[in-house]
């Protein structure tokens, strides 16, 4: 494997993404919405204001799941911790998923639309190197965006909630595990799926639609199953990550196996 060629292809794509307004603004918007908007919103909800908070019914029960240290907080503060630290945090996985799909969807069909695909295929890289470069091009910014956003989210959560909780408390250990272990797995999922799509469609629009749809399905699964995710034990989180990596390996291997220069060229 000629890693210099792989890295060059990835770096070139990254440079292009940085100069692509549509892509950068989508990514920026998503980040601001998730990492700044959501913590602010939750922090400003009425129950966060006072210690009494009124009757929160069944949610009162849920806050019993919080770690012992946070059980003594007033009910309003407990709700904020529950929402920011446990319910919303898993949604953070949307970021690596979306960033990797946005970049991955462009990978081949984007070059085709802009008339550079033929030149790409005439490069001395092997089929595998080209494919690896494109996967890397989506994976790296997705993981970087995820980590940056996680840090930003942590700062915002603490800013919003420290006064009512009595100090900085986020990230929790499960949240860290989610970001460090599951986040990259999801990034790889997004990029391997969207690169595959990108070799098989005719326009960038189609690629975005198909990989957007795929992401939506995964997001729906996450919202359904994910809200309680951080209540799970670390070993279970580890297994979930492992399962996603398993799917990644299959997808990447499949993508590499069916990737063919001849096929791409013949369709161009």
């Amino acid at each position: 494997m000629n890693w210099r060629a792989v890295r060059a292809v990835a770096a070139k794509d990254l440079l292009e993404v940085r100069k692509n307004r549509m892509a950068t603004w989508s990514i920026l918007g998503l980040s601001v919405f998730f990492s700044v908007g959501m913590p602010l919103l939750i922090g400003l909800l009425p129950f966060a204001a006072g210690p009494s908070g009124g009757d929160l019914g069944p949610f009162e029960q849920l806050t019993r799941l919080l770690p012992p240290g946070q059980q003594d907080l007033p009910i309003g503060s407990r709700m904020v911790v529950l929402m920011l630290g446990y319910f919303l945090a898993p949604l953070f996985l949307i970021i690596p998923l979306m960033v990797s799909s946005i970049v991955g969807a462009e990978s081949f069909v984007g070059e085709k639309e802009r008339g550079t695909l033929e030149g790409l295929l005439f490069l001395p890289a092997t089929d595998l190197e080209l494919y690896a470069g494109k996967v890397l091009a989506g994976f790296v910014p997705a993981v970087a965006a995820a980590f940056l956003n996680f840090a930003l989210y942590a700062v915002m959560v603490n800013l919003v909630s420290a006064p009512i909780v009595g100090g900085a408390w986020f990230p929790t250990v499960p949240a860290l595990a989610l970001a460090a272990w599951v986040g990259p797995a999801v990034a790889l999922l997004g990029v391997s799926a969207s690169v595959l799509v990108s070799t098989r469609v005719e326009t960038v629009l189609e690629a975005n639609q198909v990989s957007g749809l795929l992401s939506l399905v995964i997001v729906a699964l996450m919202v359904g199953q994910g809200s309680g995710l951080l209540m799970l034990s670390l070993p279970v989180l580890f297994l979930i990550g492992l399962a996603i990596y398993g799917v990644d390996v299959l997808l990447v291997r499949f993508g590499a196996a069916v990737f063919s220069r001849d096929r791409l060229m013949a369709r161009a």
Partner: peptide, 21 residues
């Protein structure tokens, strides 16, 4: 011409130089 419109002339040539080793 297989040149990348969003990149500069220098970046275009630099990219090719890298891939061609």
């Amino acid at each position: 011409p297989a040149v990348y419109g969003r990149l500069t002339a220098r970046q275009n040539l630099g990219f090719a130089a890298e891939v061609f080793g």
